[in-house]
Design a protein around this nucleic acid. Structure first.
Lengths: 134, 134
DNA sequence: GCTGACCCTTCCAACAGTTGGAAGGTCAAC
DNA sequence: GTTGACCTTCCAACTGTTGGAAGGGTCAGC
């Protein structure tokens, strides 16, 4: 099948498939007489794998590793788990940063009247040095 | 003062100060005879403002608006609050996405032995269609 | 045989924010 | 006169995805 069909079956845009190929994620797709890429069921399976891994926030580099482990029938599950744990750790850190932002900003927003007058604890909080102290 | 001093006082790297200027955030710092940028206390204050806003995750575009409101002594605090609320909403969405990822991935990790054998629910979850269903 | 619709190809650019480097000018101290 | 600490500009990288341009292939209907 060609790229359009693979895109349809995998849910990954033809555009992105080319990008993933360039990034070295796909087991090299062949070319037909017209230089069109040729895909098989296995490629579609890989694309679905990539799509789900992306949905879980894995960066391309790690998906490359994951695909390697996926293809290696003798991988130790320890490696997969380690990789996943590393990623969860990174996401957790980002989530906590978000939580902290929401906390601080939420407090400022609560304190702000939000009317026609110019007094604004939010702007004050942004201009003063340590305005978020409890 | 020149850019190095402004960087020191504001905590924003000279590099980044130039970028912010190019992005239109700073009220254009003047130039001396040698084309060196000249900064004053006000600029340093603005840079600190920008730094804190960035630390709260505001994108450059919104910081531009915030600075406009900050400078406008007759702004309605309603506008500031609206802007902040919009941002908190965006951050909340991202945080929830992170939380969902952690939930799904955490469940897969728990199920994975993490030993020398190849069986791995994580890889299974990434290859099968709806493996995260409860 | 021609035209139109649609698929495929490649290369370049943009998004956001920050950092890295290169190559050059200026000024003071030694 | 040379070192070194500043300053300047421009170009490029990071990440992932999408947009466009410009070109060729394939197949239908006419």
């Amino acid at each position: 099948m060609r790229i359009g069909q693979a895109a349809l079956l995998s849910g990954v845009s033809a555009r992105l498939i080319r990008y993933y190929e360039g990034a070295g994620l796909l087991s090299p797709a062949g070319r037909d007489a017209n230089e069109y890429r040729v895909f098989d069921e296995r490629n579609v399976h890989e694309l679905r794998f990539i799509k789900r891994a992306r949905a879980l926030g894995f960066p391309i580099k790690q998906i490359e590793e994951l695909l390697g482990l996926w293809r290696d029938k003798k991988r130790p599950s320890r490696k997969v788990r380690g990789l996943a744990e590393r990623h969860v750790q990174a996401v957790t850190t980002r989530m906590q940063a978000h939580r902290a932002i929401i906390k601080v900003l939420g407090r400022l927003i609560e304190a702000c009247k939000g009317d026609d007058r110019p007094d604004c604890p939010i702007l004050d909080g942004l201009s003063l040095s340590d305005a978020h102290k409890r």
